[in-house]
C-alpha cells in the first residue's frame, strides 16, 4: 500500500492503489455525491481533503442539475486542464450507491487519456468490490462531526 493512500472503507483501497500507480495521479479522492470521503491518495492535510471533497460534491451537484434541466442523463465525466496540471471528475454507480472520483494529475507524468483509461478500470474494480446489498448509511446531523473526525483520522492515519 502506498503510504499516501488511505481508505475509510477498506474495499476501496486496492482499486485506488492500482489506479494511482497506473495513472500516475498526484491526488485522488473517492467520495459520495454528498461529499463523504471513502478513500484518498496524495493529500497531506485534512483541510485539503475537506475542501476538495466539498468542491467536488458541489460540481457533481451543479452539473447534475444542469443535465437535468437539459433533460439528459447526468454528465459521465468532467475534466479541466491547465498548463501543468489537469483534473478529472466522474461519477459511476455501485452497490454502495453513486460514487465520484476526483483525480488530479501532472501533465509531465500523465495525461487525460491515461487517467480516463485507468479510471475505467478503477470504476469497474470498485463496482466489483463494493459490498453487495449494502444500504448506504445515513449520516445524521448529530453524528456528522464525529463521523467526519473519524474519517479524517482514518484517512491520515491518526
Amino acid at each position: 500500500m502506498s503510504p499516501h493512500t488511505r481508505a475509510v472503507e477498506t474495499w476501496t483501497l486496492q482499486p485506488l492503489t492500482d489506479f494511482v500507480r497506473e495513472a500516475s495521479a498526484r491526488l485522488v479522492l473517492v467520495l459520495t455525491p454528498s461529499g463523504q470521503v471513502l478513500a484518498q491518495s496524495g493529500f497531506s492535510r485534512a483541510v485539503d481533503v475537506m475542501s476538495a471533497a466539498a468542491l467536488a460534491a458541489a460540481i457533481v451537484a451543479s452539473t447534475g442539475e444542469l443535465a437535468r434541466q437539459l433533460r439528459q442523463p447526468p454528465f459521465a465525466a468532467l475534466s479541466h486542464q491547465g498548463p501543468r496540471t489537469g483534473f478529472f471528475l466522474a461519477t459511476f454507480l455501485t452497490d454502495r450507491g453513486t460514487l465520484a472520483v476526483l483525480a488530479v494529475y501532472d501533465l509531465d507524468v500523465s495525461s487525460l487519456g491515461i487517467v480516463q483509461l485507468f479510471y475505467e478500470q478503477l470504476a469497474a474494480d470498485l463496482k466489483a468490490a463494493s459490498p453487495k446489498g449494502a444500504v448506504p448509511k445515513q449520516v445524521l446531523a448529530a453524528d456528522f462531526e464525529r463521523e467526519l473526525t473519524d474519517s479524517l483520522n482514518t484517512l491520515f492515519g491518526r
Partner: peptide, 12 residues
C-alpha cells in the same frame, strides 16, 4: 482510447 493514451504516453 487505450491505443491513443498509451501511444501518447510512450511518445512523451
Amino acid at each position: 482510447s487505450a491505443v491513443a493514451a498509451l501511444a501518447a504516453s510512450l511518445a512523451g
